[in-house]
Design a binder for these strands. Structure first.
Length: 245
DNA sequence: CCGGTTGTTCAGCG
DNA sequence: GCGCTGAACAACCG
């Protein structure tokens, strides 16, 4: 569920409820979720992995973390963290992190950092990367301040597609390679979106959870790398460790 | 049935 | 105050 493109799919699915009035609020959240009762949803937004349900004076911020899920007009045998009932149907959110934002999301979020946003700004991402020359590229791609919405699958696939070794430092990458990386994070994320919608995402994985490099056929390396210590799949032959020796 | 994870925050420590 | 580590959360797949 969690990566940015999946949140975009959710945002599309809930569009019929935009402008509609919440008739009943339930859930096991300890927050004052009843505030939504009787109010109209003014908008659904997303920023990276955050899903936002906006009302005129506050916003629900939902983060699905690793295990969160949602059901629309369906329920399962556990209590939702948050359930919003409308005359037209029900939105159920399970096992997610819920927060209530009292400020306008526009003042809280840098939309230019959202890899799925129309406001995505690759130049801003480049500046942020250049400011962190010591960072490992495997960590930088997961940095939500730079690539909001990028997750571990996107990281692994993008580093393979751009043939960058995950332990390369940002400062060692030539500027054209950094630009290519930035471009590919967004480009792959939209491939992810289309494949996920078509239920063929896994079929297109080149290295994530894979054993053999599809290009040179040698075994892939699987290691936990970087400060993020996340599972990383890469080909030691095809992916270049910068600086090049 | 167990092991592992598309993620993040926070406590505890040196 | 910092950076680092590990725990906690909690559901589903293979």
């Amino acid at each position: 569920m969690p990566e940015g493109p999946s949140i975009v799919i959710l945002k599309e699915l809930v569009q019929p409820y935009k402008g509609k009035k919440v008739t009943e609020v339930t859930g096991n959240s300890k927050l004052p979720i009843g505030r939504a009762a009787g109010k109209k949803v003014t908008d659904f937004k997303s920023w990276g992995k955050h899903f936002l349900i906006c009302f005129d004076d506050f916003t629900f911020r939902i983060h699905f973390l690793l295990f969160g899920s949602y059901l629309i007009n369906e329920e399962k045998n556990t209590t939702p963290r948050l359930s919003l009932k409308f005359r037209q149907g029900t939105l159920n959110f399970y096992s997610c992190s819920l927060k209530i934002l009292d400020e306008d999301p526009d003042t809280l979020y840098d939309w230019s950092a959202d890899i799925m946003s129309d406001n995505w700004n690759p130049e801003a991402a480049l500046e942020k990367l250049i400011a962190r020359p010591e960072a490992l590229v495997c960590d930088a791609v997961l940095n939500q301040d730079i690539f909001a919405g990028a997750g571990n699958i996107i990281k692994n696939e993008v580093l393979y597609r751009t043939r960058i070794h995950p332990l390369s430092t940002i400062g060692a990458l030539p500027s054209n390679k950094l630009k290519e990386l930035i471009h590919e994070v967004r480009n792959y994320s939209f491939d992810f979106l289309e494949w996920k919608k078509a239920y063929v995402l896994k079929k297109h994985w080149l290295v994530h959870t894979k054993q053999i490099c599809p290009r040179c056929q040698i075994p892939l390396i699987r290691e936990y790398l970087g400060k993020t210590n996340r599972r990383t799949f890469y080909c030691a032959n095809c992916q270049v460790l910068y600086p090049v020796a």
